[in-house]
Design a protein around this nucleic acid. Structure first.
Length: 502
RNA sequence: CGGGGUGUGGCGCAGUUGGCUAGCGCGCCACGUUCGGGACGUGGAGGCCGGAGGUUCGAGUCCUCUCACCCCGACCA
């Protein structure tokens, strides 16, 4: 290879390898695959059509699952009066530091600088409005007027919305100042029913992650230190990604009666007595996209889970002449209609401007699960070249029966991706008996570290302080095992799952 | 908020101790040849060098101030 083409190769295939710089690899994938871009506003991103199509697929399926579990969509205001946010103490304290605040409602021409605008000091709001960092406050203020009797319960509401949290440090999809999410808010007559709801939705998230995103998740409950501000219990799904860090991909909270009390939401029970209602809230966000990228991607680019991939199959014609291209394109489009009829999302890329090789690399970068190439040889033999993104393998297959083969293959890819992430997690989950071992595994291997913990926040924070690792959760299905806390040596029956977290 | 970077056509960069008309690669436009793993030729278009002020005969380059973004850490989904 000449020096020139070697340089060219370096420039074009410029996804930074994971081993070299994982953070840069992640950014390269987001930007170069066309999922999203930085915006003119610090910490805020532009979700590009390809990324938004992915989000829409996630949204569509989750929305269906929420409806199947009896929830209805509604929409609440972006602005939260400051006094509402103050009502639940823990909640207020937890979110205070990261709120954007609206203080004025008007601009005017700046008399000092022609053509410039300034905040009109006469248009100051009586009460500041907080841009929602989450909607418990507005929603519970509303629920107060919706709930009178036990007959109004359970109240099962979801909203799809954007929210703003003024984080110090942001990362595309993983932590942006503004992000898109869904937040479920429910009210129940009994404690048991609310807990059941919080757990049910956690399982909905876990099922969704596994069956649609090919992500094995760890389901568990958060410790007091990691709990949502205002919750009695926070459940979570955690995913271990390729750099050995854990990422919280979804949460579900049992809120007890905290919000009912703060907003005075009571109902008349069957015995004609007034009671406070019991609450839950639960959410997943565009962070799921970041999780998909980090869990599945490789040094060639994204690998999108087939069931949510905006394009499941790309067809690339290969032709020597424009007549031939036309001929092959016809075959490609005919194949596309056939596959589309089977609910497969197909794109034919017959753009004559780009050569096939360019397209191959491009769709690999964009993580399209399957690729078909059709060339003159295929035309003669009635075959296609079928390549899969997850394994980077390809084979020549007959045109006959392609739709069945592809449906099967998309399922195979899904399962293979799931298995890979699960195997990675299993290979990076270490049970330790001592704090020395804990520290050694953390620095040398990473991943989940399972260890006995005495259940105190002091121990948890001390470990965090010394190692940066936090307790991601106590798994829900864990059997109590007697042991000793690795840090304090006190008796412990709990094994906590630790990791460095995103 | 601390530490480190970077700002020069759409993208990635070069531009020396100040000096002529600011370059290169990719991309873009036109035409032609190509097409089974990021093709090539020819001809084009595209820049108040992040901003303001200063030094100078002369500033992308030197000085002062400023703004923005990125990365690393502290806070967090």
């Amino acid at each position: 290879m000449s020096e020139r083409s070697a340089n060219k190769e370096f420039e074009i295939k410029s996804v930074t390898p994971r081993a070299k710089d994982y953070a840069q690899w992640y950014n390269d994938l987001v930007l170069k695959s066309g999922l999203a871009d930085y915006s003119a506003v610090r910490g805020c991103m532009v979700i590009k059509p390809y990324g938004y199509a992915l989000w829409e697929n996630i949204q569509r399926q989750l929305d269906q699952m929420f409806k199947e579990t009896g929830h209805q969509n509604a929409y609440f205001p972006l602005f939260v009066p400051k006094s509402f946010l103050e009502k639940e103490e823990g909640h207020a304290e937890g979110f205070a530091k990261e709120c954007a605040v609206v203080t004025h409602y008007r601009l005017k021409n700046d008399p000092q600088h022609k053509g410039k605008l300034m905040v009109d000091p006469e248009a100051k709001l009586e009460e500041e409005l907080v841009v929602r960092p989450t909607s418990e406050a507005v929603i519970w203020n509303t629920f107060k007027s919706w709930i009178r009797s036990y007959r109004d319960l359970p109240l099962l509401i979801n909203q799809w919305a954007n929210i703003v949290r003024w984080e110090m440090r942001t990362r595309l999809f993983l932590r942006t100042t503004e992000f898109l999410w869904q937040e479920g808010h429910t009210a129940h007559a009994t404690r048991e029913e609310a807990i059941e709801e919080a757990r049910r939705m956690l399982h909905v998230y876990a099922d969704f992650a596994e069956h649609w995103l090919a992500l094995p998740v760890l389901k568990g409950v958060k410790t007091a230190a990691e709990r949502f501000a205002g919750a009695e219990d926070t459940y979570c799904i955690e995913v271990l990604v390729q750099d050995g860090k854990a990422i919280q991909a979804g949460t579900s909270h049992f809120l007890g009666q905290n919000f009912a009390k703060a907003f005075d939401v009571t109902f008349t029970n069957r015995n004609n007595q007034q009671e406070y209602v019991w609450a839950t809230s639960w959410g997943v966000s565009t962070r799921l996209i970041g999780t998909i990228i980090m869990a599945h991607g490789d040094d060639h680019g994204l690998i999108l889970p087939p069931r949510v991939a905006p394009i499941q199959l790309v067809i690339i014609p290969i032709a020597r002449s424009s007549q031939q291209l036309e001929q092959i394109s016809q075959v490609a489009h005919r194949l596309k209609s056939e596959l589309t009829a089977h609910q497969i999302r197909v794109r034919v890329d017959d753009d004559p401007q780009q050569k096939p090789g360019w397209k191959f690399t491009e769709y690999e970068l964009r993580g399209v699960p399957l690729r078909i190439a059709i060339g003159p040889r295929d035309l003669e033999q009635n075959t296609v070249e079928l390549a899969r993104r997850d394994t980077l393998t390809k084979e020549i297959v007959p045109m006959e029966g392609l739709s069945t083969r592809i449906q099967t293959l998309l399922d195979d890819i899904h399962h293979n991706m799931y298995r890979r992430v699960l195997q990675f997690r299993e290979a990076h989950t270490t049970y330790v008996q001592s704090y020395d071992e804990f520290k050694k595994v953390l620095t040398e291997k990473g991943g989940f570290i399972v260890a006995h913990w005495d259940g105190t926040t002091e121990t948890e924070l001390a470990i965090k302080e010394e190692t940066k690792a936090t307790i991601r959760c106590i798994p829900l299905d864990q059997q109590p095992v007697p042991g000793k806390c690795i840090y304090s040596g006190k008796p412990s029956h709990l094994q906590a799952w630790f990791a460095i977290a995103y």
